[in-house]
Design a binder for these strands. Structure first.
Lengths: 208, 208
DNA sequence: AATCAGTTTGACCGATCGATCAAATCGCAC
DNA sequence: GTGCGATTTGATCGATCGGTCAAACTGATT
């Protein structure tokens, strides 16, 4: 490995640590509540050192947010890899719930931004319009073909999002409802099974 | 009206203004992000004046939070005023959605606290255990009597909470999904109808 | 008019905020 | 080991943070 590559590698590692620290801090405190001091500490840096790698807190926040939604962009829309509504819906829900349980902080950061009125996000989410409409079109096709019961395609997408996201955003409450301690894992399969059944039944796809 | 009563009335008004201001500020910025300066301004007070009526920011936060959950305590559990599951579920959802759309900031403040890991709330929500268990028992009764399909009583409660709460916590995203401007009202009836149908179908109560 | 509890105000406290700077330090090529 | 670009550091900036205080003000009672 050349010296130059080593440098790049080092920098990348630090930027990764900063991103992780930013996600943690912004997710639990929000943009205004987060402090650069705390982000630096989480990343194992001093405050001036952090500012050597980033310019401002606001920019770090925006970049972190954009990184997240770019990672999500195609993953979390109903995708027509299969033509079978049952398969498409089941896989969407399973993927989304696994992500929510594995990366709750990422979900919470997103939730926090939306709760603030999405001042940063709304400048970028026009790009998501297409995904929403494509999914709605897909569902309308299923309805016309008699494959699923009539549902509001937009509200149905939102409802799936709401329930799956809930297991990250409200993790503390989920643990309370399921009578779990902070160190006990949440039963992923139990939740995926139940939520999947909920939405399949809601559009007449469950035979139980 | 006596002079003494006038004084009490005045104080009460100010305390109400502070509570409203606190809800707004804490809901959009969180505990750490909120500033007493901003809360005072929202309430039409100076900062020292605010501290004449409250002691610390943390205490104001806790009191505001407790006021909210006390207001909710019995309202937002499945209550057995009727024996008919369809009625009980429909009314719960309608009430919850109307509240979410009318008082989104209140919902968001609660959401923010839970997202932080509920450090304050968890000291008080053992009182909610009973409500959760009572609702679960109610649903188990329905299932045994063959009135509804088998569902997980705890997850079913959470899912209803998740979807209804979503319309407050994610209001900005809801507006995006439904292609609404900030000044356009959200169609309450459309949402209540759809969400109700979702959950009634999920437990086999919808005949459409 | 004098009194006095209740309230409001401006000045101010130490601490921390986000951010900057010059100086010190580092790693590596030569 | 000298030089040089990349990085790290301690000191420090002005602003704001949560909170306090004595002094001024208010309005009703006497």
């Amino acid at each position: 490995m050349t010296a130059n590559a080593k440098l790049l590698d080092r920098r990348q590692k630090i930027h990764l640590a900063i991103r992780d620290a930013a996600i943690e801090e912004f997710a639990s405190k929000g943009l205004d509540g987060a402090s650069t001091q705390a982000i630096a500490r989480r990343a194992g840096l001093s405050k001036p050192q952090l500012h050597y790698y980033i310019s401002t807190k606001e920019e770090l926040y925006e970049k972190t947010l954009l990184f997240i939604i770019n990672e999500w962009s195609d993953q979390f829309f109903l995708s027509s890899v299969s033509d079978d509504p049952k398969t498409v819906i089941s896989e969407y829900i399973a993927t989304k719930i696994r992500h929510a349980l594995a990366q709750p902080q990422v979900c919470r950061l997103f939730a926090n931004e939306v709760a603030r009125g999405a001042p940063i996000l709304r400048r970028h989410w026009s790009a998501s319009r297409e995904g929403v409409e494509r999914a709605a079109e897909l569902m309308r096709g299923w309805i016309e073909a008699g494959k699923i019961k009539a549902v509001d395609p937009y509200l149905f997408q939102m409802e799936m999002w709401a329930v799956t996201q809930h297991f990250a955003d409200y993790e503390a409450q989920v643990r309370f409802m399921l009578d779990l301690d902070d160190d006990q894992p949440i039963d992923e399969e139990r939740i995926i099974t139940d939520v999947t059944a909920l939405f399949l039944r809601a559009c007449g796809l469950d035979n139980s």
